[in-house]
């Protein structure tokens, strides 16, 4: 009887330690998030008020968070997408113009934005697979192209359309759940769906397989190119959703906004424990990574640290987060990063 008990206990212990080992990236990221959050709360309690948590921190995570989820799929394949920021601006501009021209309602507008985003993503995928361009170069080109097109289509002027479409401003600011901004709900639902796609579908399985060993995946008969186009398109759908959210948050489409957002998104992905070399990563980690960034930036603003120093601190935290992650992996005998 007593022997049985000890066996189960040690088995349970093994399970727990196995879980911790498997999930340590996310656990470590979550722990940093809690530590940073606690630090700011002690420094200024108003930081932890719901008004700041929902309207400041969570709301600030929505756009970068959605971009980061999209780019997580791409990074797990071992690729990169530098175009997510300016593509977002382009989708915002095209959606704004189209919604105005055809008098679309809010739901059609949202779907349209996601569709355009998906198409832009598919173009990236095709450049990489058909023209065999390195992802870095292909998406650098589309990043520039999207930036230019957004300016051309908008005639370099913001497109004020949200006030003309009933419900558009509610996409971000409305509350289906009381006191909980819809944009944050969208982020969480999009994260759960993303996580399901990554872990429970064929696309998710091939996503990891391509990132771990492209050649082996090809040899096993998987039509790698098609799946890659699909994965870049999926990333684009998230970019489209981010575009919808940002137009709702701003009440307009800003054509010159988005450059630099791709790096913030990629930073969130890496802080969340996804490997830049592919084959490893989680959506949950990415969301935590994006939260770390926005908690940090919001906290420094609440403390009213001089802006120049805010940049320095953010840079240092990114460095530290990735360094700590590398160190832990090396100790665990993981040589991929």
């Amino acid at each position: 009887m007593s022997e049985d008990l000890t066996t189960t206990q040690s088995e349970g212990g093994n399970k727990v330690s196995a879980f911790v080992r498997r999930e340590i990236g996310r656990v470590a990221a979550l722990a940093s998030l809690v530590i940073i959050f606690t630090f700011f709360t002690i420094m200024r309690p108003v930081f932890a008020s719901w008004a700041n948590v929902s309207g400041g921190i969570l709301m600030s995570t929505t756009v970068i968070g959605l971009l980061a989820i999209g780019v997580t799929f791409v990074i797990i394949t071992g690729g990169i997408d530098l175009s997510v920021g300016t593509s977002m601006a382009l989708v915002a501009v095209i959606t704004g113009k189209t919604v105005m021209a055809y008098d679309l309602n809010v739901w059609t507008g949202i779907l349209f934005g996601m569709l355009v985003g998906g198409l832009l993503g598919a173009i990236n995928g095709l450049l990489i697979t058909v023209l065999k361009l390195p992802a870095f170069i292909a998406t650098l080109a589309t990043m520039k192209g999207a930036q230019g097109l957004a300016l051309i289509i908008s005639d370099m002027k913001p497109i004020l359309f949200a006030t003309d479409v009933e419900g558009w401003d509610q996409i971000a600011r409305g509350n289906i759940i009381p006191n909980f901004p819809n944009a944050v709900l969208i982020l969480f639902v999009a994260a759960i769906i993303g996580s399901l796609i990554l872990n429970k579908t064929v696309l998710g399985r091939y996503n990891f397989a391509i990132g771990s060993n492209l050649e082996a995946t090809k040899l096993s008969g998987v039509k790698v190119n098609r799946w890659l186009v699909a994965i870049y398109a999926l990333c684009g759908v998230y970019v489209g959703l981010a575009a919808v959210v940002i137009t709702s948050r701003l009440g307009s489409a800003q054509p010159d906004l988005g450059l630099g957002y791709e790096l913030e998104a990629i930073a969130a992905v890496i802080i969340g424990g996804t490997s830049l070399f592919g084959g490893k990563g989680t959506i949950g980690g990415t969301v935590i990574g994006a939260l770390i960034m926005s908690v940090l930036i919001n906290g420094l603003r609440i403390l009213e640290l001089q802006q120049e120093w805010q940049y320095v601190v953010v840079g240092a935290v990114i460095l530290f987060a990735v360094f700590a992650d590398n160190l832990r992996r090396r100790r665990a005998g993981d040589t991929t990063v």
Binding site: G55, I246, Q254, L257
Partner: peptide, 13 residues
Amino acid sequence: ALKAQEIISAALV
């Protein structure tokens, strides 16, 4: 505009 919004939201808090 988005960064401005976030800066001002934090300042209001």
